[in-house]
Design a binder for these strands. Sequence first.
DNA 1: TTTAAATCGATGTATATACATCTAAATAAT
DNA 2: ATTATTTAGATGTATATACATCGATTTAAA
Lengths: 161, 161
Amino acid sequence: MNVCTYICVVKLEQAIKSNKFKSEVHKGVLNILYTAWWLKTVMSKELKEFGLTHEQYNVLRILKGKYPEQMCVRDIACRMIEKSSNVPRIIDRLELKKLVKRSNSAIDKRETVITLTQSGITILEATTLSVNQMMDTVLTVNNRDAALLNQLLEKVRISES
Amino acid sequence: MNVCTYICVVKLEQAIKSNKFKSEVHKGVLNILYTAWWLKTVMSKELKEFGLTHEQYNVLRILKGKYPEQMCVRDIACRMIEKSSNVPRIIDRLELKKLVKRSNSAIDKRETVITLTQSGITILEATTLSVNQMMDTVLTVNNRDAALLNQLLEKVRISES
DNA sequence: TTTAAATCGATGTATATACATCTAAATAAT
DNA sequence: ATTATTTAGATGTATATACATCGATTTAAA
């Protein structure tokens, strides 16, 4: 069975061939992990058309958020979804593709400031349009359910310790 | 800010320093991705004590599900949460640590069958106990909310195409 | 029966994750 | 002012992801 086949497999039990879960909470953990993989796979398929990875797209979008201001590596890193992302290395690939530009900060010589290039803006806009359009088609969940989901995910992350 | 600090950051807006979302659905996508990273980070911290990665633990648990039966690589792969996992390579590390054993199938010579070793069973049991205990402490969400969350995640994965 | 197609899993490559370490620079402490 | 500490980001390493390819089988087709 092809990886893409799973995009149409809705049931978790079917996806991981298991129907014995310790509890709904335990199932929920697996469900979140699986859904995250599913979403990444769906998105990556679209991003690939533009030669971008999920993480590169994330960095570009973060830069867009402050544009035309520049951002230092640290500022980008703390906005990443996956906090352990190695941002300097992601910047490396984006720089090779000339989508961003590195330069040294005048204020703090330790900092490297990153700028979106015109090419970066153009690709990002086209990609965002395409990704959003695709997501609107693929995701049929409504905003009311999504709002409830957002509340529940926050509850999951309320930790005792 | 240390990566571990984020374990105590509950709000998505705070975690990714953004409060402008196109819609609740769009926010939901980011929320699922972030929560998955959060869960993996929390779990990995515990797994590290036993010298296991998240994926290695996943493979061991899948093998446990059929134990004492053996499983071929493909059978393991289709039960993985992340479908694009490179199972032969994960087996490589587990074999080096002598937690599993590879052997050739007598029925189909193309297949490699994997067996949990006694050492594998022992480590898996200790790890599972520790991980479950930690999860029960960290996750305070109740089963009713988790059941609702599971329904909503399934709705997210209902695709038009 | 011989060839063609499909399958299994090992392996190669580029990128990313999750760390640790290192250098340079900035800040704090003495 | 000098030293110590902290911080920024580059870099190194092991592992994983997301593919593609390849050899050895097995199955299907001619």
